[in-house]
């Protein structure tokens, strides 16, 4: 079975909180120097889900990523995990794409690749975390979508998807092709370790421009975007700790109890 996985490059979410800086003017995050971007965690798990299916049913995994700058590293990461082929779709116009814009670009690329049984996305991105691209993409392509998957099986040309819900799991059956968004409960992605790690280093990753996928940039016109970020701020977090003192520890405890009971 052939799977297409959509991955996104994000600023490393594990930078120390104190190093997290934003530029309120441009409404952008300013990544600290020397910290390379990484593949979005849920997308990495989507790659893992694809690999698990491939381990069982063979087939081909194609990985794509959309970006304004150089995003081939995340595709390379997926290749080093064991994906077969990767493409990036790059253009300066892709800066600040909203979910609809991203899904539009992806849909064009996917239509160019064709021949898929399954499309996988992360449940949301680790940066802006809009959590919509997968569903919108499925609507554009006109295929069913199952969200928050924690397990995918292929049975009789159908997909059985185990899905995370609040109080447990649901198992859904959906035809091929479908789009499935993957949640972290699927488990840790494999460490890119085997031969694929070395082979991926040297692999050429074709870069597609909008015209290569038949995308009319006016479709992404800023005015046609649905939402606009008008502000970005770091929530103020009281850094000073109020040390509660008392003549005895018990007395301090009583004062603390007073303060805490106001929280409820």
């Amino acid at each position: 079975m052939n799977t297409i996985v959509c991955v996104k490059q994000v600023p490393d979410p594990e930078i120390p909180p104190a190093k997290f800086k934003i530029d309120p003017e441009t409404k952008k995050v300013v990544p600290p120097p020397g910290v390379p971007p990484v593949i979005s965690v849920y997308d990495e798990r989507a790659v893992e889900a694809a690999l698990r299916l491939k381990d069982k049913h063979k087939g081909k995994i194609t990985v794509i990523s959309v970006g304004a700058g150089k995003v081939s590293d995340v595709v390379r990461h997926a290749l080093s995990m064991g994906a077969d082929e990767g493409f990036v779709i790059e253009d300066g116009a892709f800066e600040n794409l909203d979910s609809f814009g991203t899904a539009t670009v992806l849909s064009k690329a996917i239509q160019k690749i064709g021949g898929y049984d399954l499309i996988l996305c992360g449940r949301q991105a680790a940066d802006w975390g809009a959590g919509q691209v997968g569903s919108i993409l499925a609507e554009i392509l006109g295929i069913p979508v199952v969200t928050f998957a924690c397990g995918i099986e292929a049975v009789d040309k159908k997909l059985r998807v185990r899905r995370v819900v609040k109080d447990g799991f649901e198992i859904l059956e959906t035809p091929m092709p479908s789009l499935v968004t993957v949640s972290s409960e699927i488990g840790l992605p494999r460490l890119p370790a085997g031969m694929s790690l070395m082979l991926a280093r040297k692999k050429q990753i074709p870069v597609w421009k909008p015209q290569d996928i038949g995308l009319d940039l006016s479709d992404l016109d800023k005015e046609k975007a649905h939402t606009e970020i008008i502000g970005l701020s770091i929530p103020t977090r009281k850094k000073e700790c109020e040390i509660i003192t008392g003549t005895t520890p018990a007395e301090a405890a009583i004062q603390l109890a007073e303060k805490l009971s106001q929280l409820f």
Binding site: A253, I254, S261
Partner: peptide
């Protein structure tokens, strides 16, 4: 922990918790 805490008590927890529990019981 006091660098990230909102409230802090510098003391042995064994002396703090019993008083905290009984006071909270009363308040709640």
């Amino acid at each position: 922990i006091f660098n990230v805490a909102r409230y802090g008590i510098v003391a042995d927890y064994k002396e703090v918790l019993p008083a905290l529990i009984s006071k909270l019981k009363e308040r709640l």
